[in-house]
Simulated assay, not measured.
Amino acid sequence: MQGMLERNRITTVTKPDVSNMSLCIENVKKAVLSNLQGPSDPTDYHQLMGRLHAAKAKLPKIYQETVASPFIKELDELGQQGFTEILIQDPSRTRAAGLMLDIAQSILQNGEGYNVLATDAFQEIVSDLYDGFLSAEDRQGIKEPDLSIIPALVKWGAPENGPYTWPADATAVFKVQAAIVSLPPAHATNGLMAWSSIPHEVCGHDILHADLGLLQELANVVRNRLNSENIGQGLPDYWASRIDETASDVLGVLNLGPAAAIGLVGYFRGMNAAFSGRAQLRNEGPARDPHAADILRGYLGAYATALLEFDQAGAWAEIIESETDKDFSNIKLNGRAIDANTAKRSARIVAESIMKTKL
Rank of each mutant, 00 (worst) to 15 (best):
D249P: 02
I262C: 06
W166G: 03
I150Q: 09
R225G: 00
G335N: 06
P159E: 10
K326W: 08
D102E: 14
G270F: 01
G132M: 07
V202E: 06
I62V: 14
L215R: 08
F310E: 09
N20M: 11
P60I: 07
K155W: 07
A313E: 06
R345Y: 07
A315C: 10
A194K: 01
I149D: 11
K29H: 10
V222A: 00
A292F: 03
E352V: 04
P159C: 08
G191I: 04
T14A: 13
G204Y: 02
A259V: 03
E323M: 15
D311N: 10
T246F: 00
A194V: 07
L192V: 09
I349G: 01
A313Q: 09
E201G: 01
S40M: 14
I262N: 05
Q216W: 12
L281I: 00
S127Q: 11
P286C: 00
N330C: 08
A279M: 08
A152R: 03
S40K: 13
V253P: 00
D102P: 04
S69D: 14
P145G: 04
F174H: 03
L254P: 01
D206Q: 08
M193D: 13
K73N: 15
E323V: 12
L296G: 04
Q216K: 14
T246E: 00
A317V: 01
M49L: 13
A317R: 03
R225S: 12
Y238R: 05
D138V: 13
E323S: 10
P184D: 11
A306S: 14
L256K: 02
Y114V: 14
I142R: 13
N334H: 08
N272A: 05
I231S: 01
P91H: 05
E284D: 11
A219V: 02
